[in-house]
């Protein structure tokens, strides 16, 4: 609500001492997520969309749009593209420094870009229609509607759900000449559309917050003010770590670091089966 990032020393001390004894200010245990709501197909004009709201705080809306794009010379000839953008809506960030909002937008966009482009999650090669000519381009646009801590985890949950919900039209490819030239038609039947190849390999994130010699998940906004450092670990359904990213201004002792990497998505989140087969 009316927090401007200000917090009193007594509040910080109260919250941090709570971590040490394992009782958080809102009564949760250290490894307990807040209740979250997940809605699919919330934007009818998109190829797929989802909204994830955690607690009564962070609220992220993700829309995926699928379009045909040209493969330009110099680009990888046989891969489709994923373009990400994350934006905190102005209505949530009015209390912040304008630069802080810009920095956060950029940080999240780059993070998501790395998550979706740089490893074998979405099968980019299957998004190629005709090599050196045409491919599918997936625009993944996330809008942060409200902020109450733990943005990374909520964002990735919403993105995974939106990709699960996305349908790509089928194409009909035919050779037009003897020289191997090809053309294609997009089949306009929604019944014929296919899921995003490899959506199930897109990871989810668990952010571990390091504070007062211990770590906890799913920080609320106030708790984030009391955290020394955050470690975001994204894990896919095979238990592989797809990305690690530390943020925050503090350091994490080497001793606890390996232990922090052993997150198990299902235990932490309690993900619905359909989304985490």
């Amino acid at each position: 609500m009316a927090t401007t990032g200000l917090i009193s020393p007594a509040e910080i001390n109260y919250i941090r001492e709570g971590f040490a004894v394992g009782i958080r200010a809102d009564g949760r245990a250290l490894r307990q997520y807040r209740e979250y709501l997940l809605g699919l197909d919330v934007i009818s004009h998109s190829s797929g969309s989802a909204r994830c709201r955690i607690g009564f705080g962070t609220d992220v809306l993700v829309g995926v749009k699928v379009e045909v794009s040209n493969i330009e010379p110099g680009e990888v000839p046989n891969r489709g593209k994923v373009v990400c953008n994350v934006e905190c809506s102005p209505s949530t960030t009015q209390n912040w420094d304008s630069r802080a909002a810009d920095e956060l937008n950029n940080e999240l966009t780059q993070f998501l870009h790395r998550c979706l482009n740089d490893y074998d999650g979405i099968d980019l090669e299957k998004l190629c229609i005709i090599p050196n000519q045409s491919c599918w381009i997936l625009y993944v646009d996330a809008l942060v509607l409200d902020f109450g801590g733990n943005l990374y985890d909520t964002l990735l949950m919403a993105v995974r759900a939106a990709l699960f919900n996305t349908r790509i039209p089928k194409v009909h490819i035919e050779e037009t000449g003897d020289d191997g030239e090809k053309e294609f038609d997009v089949i306009d039947d929604p019944e014929e559309a296919e899921p995003v190849p490899g959506w199930a390999d897109v990871p989810l994130a668990v952010t571990l917050n390091w504070a007062n010699q211990t770590y906890f998940v799913d920080a609320s906004e106030m708790e984030e003010h009391c955290t020394d450092a955050k470690l975001t670990v994204t894990v896919n359904k095979n238990g592989h770590i797809c990305a690690i990213q530390k943020s925050g201004l503090g350091a994490i002792p080497q001793k606890v670091y390996p232990e922090m990497l052993t997150v198990r998505i299902r235990q932490e989140w309690g993900v619905p089966l359909a989304l985490w087969p």
């Binding site: 790395r114 740089d118 490893y119 074998d120 470690l231 896919n236 592989h240 770590i241 797809c242 990305a243 690690i244 990213q245 530390k246 350091a251 994490i252 002792p253 080497q254 001793k255 670091y257």
Partner: peptide, 12 residues
């Protein structure tokens, strides 16, 4: 201090 101040991993 044997503390990690930053870590980034990309790739599975």
């Amino acid at each position: 201090f044997k503390s990690i101040t930053h870590v980034v991993q990309m790739g599975k």
